[in-house]
Design a protein around this nucleic acid. Structure first.
Length: 223
DNA sequence: GCCCAGGTGGGTA
DNA sequence: TACCCACATGGG
């Protein structure tokens, strides 16, 4: 069964590459910046996240300044991202925690830890769940973690890669076993790209979903 | 006005 | 474990 699913993943991966191509590796930042950026991105859109992150960096050029700033000032800077009253204190508490534990503000130490230890450490931070931890590990540290966001979760279920009832947390575990780690990044980016197409396809008027042979939703619609 | 966007944590059964 | 909900902003 698992072997069948792996074959299916390979087929989907290949098809996604045909349709969406090889994504460019996101130019990024040191892991701490990636972490803060990802916290800001939670349950918001890219534009609002970018605006909040830019305002935060402009107002407080160093992480030390963010850490030591009055809570209200941080909150004001990141307001465009939404959920600021939650995200502001979480960001500051993350910075304080790193300072207390490491003496210096950076996450480079995670790159030499065993993967699961690094993941556990990230998950122990308030405001960091499985998705945020995986983003930092994969995008910024180049480690084999597979981030499951709302699109990946929905599309994976729809394509039958994971059972319909699978929680997002469980989906991380299942998909990390199913997808070859060398393809994590490309698969992640392209499934999201496809997920956006499917989102649009939920609108009956939309004809942008081009993966007819892979999309259960689309197939059901054809019947 | 209404809906949604690349989640997380807390509460309940 | 598995769901449910609050949390806030900006753009279509």
């Amino acid at each position: 069964m698992t072997e069948q699913l792996r074959n299916k993943v390979t087929k989907i991966h290949t098809r996604l590459l045909e349709v969406y191509g090889e994504p460019q590796w996101r130019v990024n930042t040191e892991p701490l910046g990636e972490l803060i950026n990802t916290v800001l991105s939670q349950n918001t859109n890219d534009r609002n996240r970018d605006k909040a992150y830019a305002q935060l960096r402009q107002r407080f050029p160093t992480w030390e300044e963010v850490r030591d700033a009055p809570a209200e000032d941080v909150l004001e800077a990141i307001r465009p991202a939404g959920l600021a009253p939650s995200k502001g204190p979480r960001i500051q508490s993350i910075l304080q925690r790193i300072t207390a534990e490491r003496g210096t503000l950076g996450l480079e130490f995670l790159s030499t830890m065993p993967l699961e230890d690094a993941r556990k450490w990230l998950l122990s931070l308030n405001g960091v769940g499985p998705k945020t931890a995986a983003i930092v590990l994969l995008f910024s540290l180049g480690r084999p973690a597979f981030p499951v966001d709302t699109h990946i979760h929905r599309v994976s279920k729809r394509l039958g890669l994971i059972p319909k009832r699978t929680s997002r947390e469980k989906a991380h575990v299942l998909l990390e076993e199913l997808v070859p780690s060398a393809h994590y990044y490309t698969f992640h980016i392209n499934v999201i790209e496809h997920g956006r197409a499917i989102c649009a396809a939920r609108n009956p008027k939309c004809d942008r979903c081009t993966l007819n042979d892979l999309c259960d939703y689309y197939q059901e619609k054809q019947k």
